[in-house]
Design a protein around this nucleic acid. Structure first.
Length: 691
DNA sequence: CTGCCTCGAGTTCG
DNA sequence: CTCGAGGCAG
């Protein structure tokens, strides 16, 4: 059984508390897996479980060791901070070890930590002591030694006791001062500064772009990029990478630079270090909990990754009284945000056929929890994407949820390959109909070119019934599959010929449900013509182009008689779309479909658009809607804007007049801000529309 | 031809 | 939401 499988099994039995195994057995298992994980992490530079998972396992181990009366094994990782560093750089022993921190995953765990501290200080449980909360930068811990104000050594954290001497590389980082400013006080003879090296997100994107353009493998995330860049043996390459450093504390010092932590931070800043501005000094723990919640929501607005908040007791005197357990101080705790990124095994790569015949590879993943949901599949876009990232079946891969929603495979970890991985290649024929797949010159995607492919037809039926097209209530993907595989449908117009008896033959249909569906299908006959046109699934004709075509030609009849030249005269229609539309209407099968739909009583002609605009309140304004609005649905907001003469667009650009911002927005809010586009909320939109 | 601005297509989980 | 690609102005 692989390490990952063993770990997952262990996690399950601990999580569900169905502990069939003895405590002793579980402790042994925990120690062994943790030690193996630590080895992978420190020596190969890649882990197969997330930091949060590792911490959780370690917590369980500590809990069980303290509950279990027997002696703690000498090789238990609860004694240590990590595993020994790898070869390649000179080893350096830290004068005082770099401790790791205990974790808290929610407000209650923060309160519990705070109460433990108060109890140990023999203070009443309702006392408020000074705390400092700092952002926990997701980078690499570094210890910098200064002698008489000059940087003499930089060492990585390593296992906490011994790190690696990376002084040459650290000297290339601009935010690490090579000599200290006097800071208004006398030069300190010996000072050790601790902090985090990180890769700014913006520079990270640029680095990955340039690595990709040279055909090199990209880094999975800024943290890996920072680690990789810092451990390069050629420091001139490190210099070309835009690394940065935040100082957050001190190690051994020859003379005190302050009586409390917040003072130390101010002195560090005066000495020339970059100190993160987002920190909070507070009395008591409640303000800290608010601070954590606030930054959990703001983490995307920062140009560096953060994975939590570090909370410290401000007074150094109190810190000393609190002391440390074997490897973690009692005076500090790390609040961890839910992980948005995790690693798992890529079990297989399957291919999907879209309604246009477009082929998309799909990753079949060993289920893994990311940001509170289990993820078991993710799109791999196309062949080039898989090649470019060198993703192989059996690989350990980094998975994240892009924009907090859609899972994406970001990278593979080559260091963890065992040799049994297989390079994937695009199948030569369609899995549904066997037609040869083709990739046209200059295009990124393969297509199944069959016009009778059952997979394409299933997706077309689903699309036809979907919300933005005919919006047939109760008609989704599952029903589309059922109807097509049972041959109840062979053409789109068959949808309107379905009978109750036919539906009763399907799984899961009883009389009432069948009657309701027939009724809701019939109710869609009078849908706007642009919805029907969109539903037909003509390549390059989406919602917007369908609306444009209908407002130009009013009926399917009229549209079908237009030549390519006539179509391209419409503003917004070029040769490619014109060819696609004219081509579709020229096929005899499609001519028959249009005639049949018309005969079945569907709305195939629209009234000419009314010429009155100019004095509508939103005329000439372009809107983009993002996030969830408090009262209006997305579609409602969009139709309101259109009915008042405004334009709705799907992406923010310099031409956008207003961004209507709702809850949980994605990257559009950032883009709008950077372009200086005015941002409004629903209330303001409603006011403008009324005017 | 190049650089915007848009649009289209496919997409995950609960 | 993200990607690729069509349309169009300069």
């Amino acid at each position: 059984m692989s390490l990952l499988e063993r770990t997952r099994r262990l996690q399950n039995s601990l999580k569900n508390k169905d502990r069939e195994e003895s405590a002793e057995f579980l402790i042994d298992e925990l120690i062994e897996s943790l030690n193996e994980h630590a080895l992978l992490y420190h020596q190969q530079g890649g882990s197969i479980i997330s930091d949060a998972e590792f911490d959780q396992l370690l917590n369980w181990l500590r809990e069980m060791e303290s509950a279990f009366s027997g002696p703690v094994r000498p090789d238990s990782p609860s004694h240590r901070v990590g595993a020994p560093p790898s070869e390649g750089f000179e080893k350096v022993k830290h004068r005082t070890s770099l401790l790791s921190l205990g974790n808290a995953f929610n407000g209650d765990e923060l309160r519990a930590w705070y109460e433990r501290a108060l109890r140990r200080l023999e203070l009443p449980l309702d006392s408020n002591i000074e705390l400092v909360s700092e952002l926990k930068i997701d980078g690499l811990a570094l210890s910098l030694s200064y002698e008489n104000g000059i940087l003499v050594q930089a060492a990585t954290r390593g296992d906490g006791q011994t790190g690696e001497n990376i002084t040459a590389n650290a000297r290339t980082i601009r935010s690490i001062p090579l000599s200290l400013k006097s800071g208004g006080q006398k030069v300190i003879s010996s000072l050790e500064v601790r902090g985090e090296v990180y890769f700014p997100k913006s520079s990270f994107d640029q680095l990955n772009e340039s690595l990709a353009s040279e055909g090199l493998k990209t880094f999975a995330n800024p943290r890996n990029a920072a680690a990789g860049s810092l451990r390069l043996l050629d420091s001139s390459v490190t210099a070309s990478r835009d690394l940065a450093f935040f100082a957050y504390g001190t190690g051994p010092v020859s003379e005190s630079i302050g009586g409390n932590h917040s003072e130390e931070l101010r002195v560090l800043k005066a000495l020339g270090f970059q100190v993160n501005d987002h920190f909070l000094q507070s009395l008591g723990i409640e303000a800290v909990i608010d601070f954590c919640a606030m930054f959990a929501g703001k983490r995307d607005d920062l140009d560096y990754e953060i994975d939590g908040v570090v909370v410290k007791v401000d007074s150094l005197a109190l810190q000393e009284r609190l002391g440390a357990v074997s490897n973690a101080p009692r005076w500090a705790v790390a609040y961890k945000f839910p992980a948005r990124e995790s690693t798992t095994i890529l079990r297989d790569i399957l291919i999907n056929v879209g309604r246009t015949g477009m082929i998309t590879p799909e990753a079949v993943l060993e289920p893994v929890e990311i940001g509170g949901v289990m993820v078991s599949q993710a799109t791999l876009h196309n062949e080039d994407y898989i090649r470019g990232k060198d993703i192989r079946i059996g690989d350990t891969v980094v998975v994240k949820r892009a924009g907090d929603v859609i899972p994406a495979v970001v990278a593979s970890i080559a260091a963890l390959r065992t040799g049994t991985e297989r390079i994937w290649s695009m199948p030569s024929s369609c899995p549904a109909c066997g037609t040869l797949l083709v990739r046209l010159e200059g295009e990124a995607d393969y297509y199944c070119s069959s016009s009778t492919c059952p997979a394409q037809f299933m997706r077309l039926v689903e699309h036809f019934a979907s919300r933005d097209a005919m919006d047939i209530e109760g008609f989704g993907a599952k029903l589309a599959v059922q109807l097509v595989t049972t041959d109840s449908l062979t053409s789109l117009d068959d949808i309107y010929k379905l009978t109750v008896d036919q539906l009763l033959l399907l799984d899961g249909f009883a009389l009432k449900k069948a009657e309701n569906l027939i009724e809701s299908i019939a109710a869609t006959k009078s849908r706007q013509l642009s919805r029907l046109l969109f539903g037909l699934g003509i390549r390059h004709v989406g919602k917007t182009i369908a609306e444009l075509l209908i407002s130009s030609f009013q009926s399917l009849e009229s549209l079908s008689q237009r030549t390519e030249e006539e179509l391209s005269e419409v503003d917004g229609i070029g040769p490619v779309i014109a060819k696609s539309v004219a081509g579709w209407f020229s096929e005899s099968q499609n001519k028959g479909l249009v005639a049949s739909l018309s005969g079945l009583g569907l709305n195939v002609a629209e009234d000419a658009p009314e010429g009155q605009d100019g004095d509508l309140p939103l005329t000439g304004k372009t809107f983009v809607v993002t996030g969830t609005l408090p009262s209006l649905g997305r579609a409602e907001a969009e139709s309101l804007i259109k009915s008042k003469g405004g334009k709705v667009s799907s992406s923010v650009s310099s031409k956008t007049s207003y961004l209507v911002l709702g809850e949980n927005p994605g990257s559009k809010a950032v883009k709008a801000a950077s372009l200086g586009v005015q941002i409004i909320d629903e209330t303001e939109l409603l006011t403008m529309a009324r005017a």
